[in-house]
């Protein structure tokens, strides 16, 4: 995270001078200097970085140049919306992707399996924004079933605003989550299929059949539990990237999440927000990979530590 903070800080410093955007063209040179001073932009870069690090360690990521609020608050305020969207998209892609992939792997010569695989190629190759726009066209504009943008009314649970508890919330969630989840779903289908084809040839699957187990148990326990190991890894990684880079989907659907905030902040060269955003994302990724590691040891006893006898 330390490395990340340096990279981001220097990177954003190089991009441009926020004063050029913040200060109106009619302002005098004196005004400019006053604003620069108040924001601390007159000092050299290393000094700015040091100030940033010392206050960041105390939980203060600075104030947004644009909103005048603490940057971290801006981000945390919008985080639940993004997290909810990303989690539901991931959940959908696993729930749909694993059974389809499993089927395509086990019955790989059937027409249905080939159709699934062809569909997954589409899911992969269609660009995100196009899918989003098409979904809006069909479901919001033509059919009028679902709202095209925004998050709609939310419910408050433990101080966090969430949408997934009400039907209206789901209506708002459906299209962006589908857009976001589609390519992940395609990825999981392909992964599940490949591992299922590998696992079904293993001796222990044949042995499970030789023990007289029902096909349901052979597939549902012996094969499924083995393919869940790689799927968990990939899902974890993909969840991280969904949270961090849901930008496009959030922009299309005007979803009030972190991604939209990031885009706005970059446009305005709002350094504290961008830096704080990336730090938060890195932190989330670390947490997610920790969770994946823990899940991993639940699923695969061979990676458990301290149990070897």
């Amino acid at each position: 995270m330390a490395v990340m903070s340096v990279l981001v800080f220097v990177g954003i410093y190089m991009i441009g001078d926020p004063l050029a955007i913040l200060v109106s063209p009619e302002a005098t040179e004196l005004d400019r200097e006053a604003i620069a001073k108040s924001l601390g932009l007159d000092r050299p870069m290393w000094e700015q970085y040091l100030t940033f690090v010392t206050s960041a360690l105390q939980g203060n990521f600075g104030k947004s140049f644009v909103f005048g609020q603490p940057a971290i608050n801006l981000i945390l305020e919008r985080m639940p919306a993004t997290l909810e969207l990303a989690l539901i998209a991931t959940f959908m892609s696993v729930v749909i992707g694993v059974p389809l992939g499993l089927y395509a792997g086990l019955r790989h010569e059937t027409v249905a399996a080939r159709a699934i695989m062809a569909g997954s190629v589409l899911g992969f190759s269609l660009p995100n924004f196009w899918v989003g726009l098409m979904l809006i066209m069909v479901f919001a504009v033509q059919l009028g079933w679902l709202p095209a943008s925004g998050r709609g009314p939310t419910m408050e649970v433990l101080g966090i605003h969430v949408s997934f508890l009400s039907l209206t919330g789901w209506k708002y969630l459906a299209l962006p989550a589908l857009t976001l989840g589609l390519s992940k779903c395609a990825l999981i289908i392909r992964l599940a299929r490949a591992t299922a084809r590998e696992v079904m040839l293993m001796d222990y699957v044949k042995f499970a059949r030789a023990k007289g187990l029902s096909e349901k148990r052979v597939i549902g326990v012996h094969i499924l539990k083995n393919i869940m190991v790689p799927i968990t890894t990939v899902t974890g990684l993909e969840l991280g990237s969904l949270i961090a880079f849901a930008v496009i989907t959030e922009t299309i659907f005007s979803w009030p999440g972190m991604g939209k905030l990031l885009i706005d902040s970059i446009v305005h060269l709002d350094r504290p927000v961008v830096v704080a955003y990336l730090i938060v994302v890195v932190f989330l990724l670390v947490i997610i990979s920790l969770i994946v590691d823990i899940l991993y040891s639940v699923l695969d006893p061979r990676v458990r530590l301290g149990e070897a006898k």
Binding site: M202, D203, Y204, K206, F207, A208, A210, K211, G212, L213, H222, K225, N226, V229, L299, D300, P301, R302
Partner: peptide
């Protein structure tokens, strides 16, 4: 598995690792 049972060649592969 009940009346006709089979034992396989490689014991490393016949038991499900997970």
């Amino acid at each position: 598995g009940s009346r006709i049972a089979m034992i396989f060649q490689d014991p490393m592969m016949t038991l499900n690792p997970v």
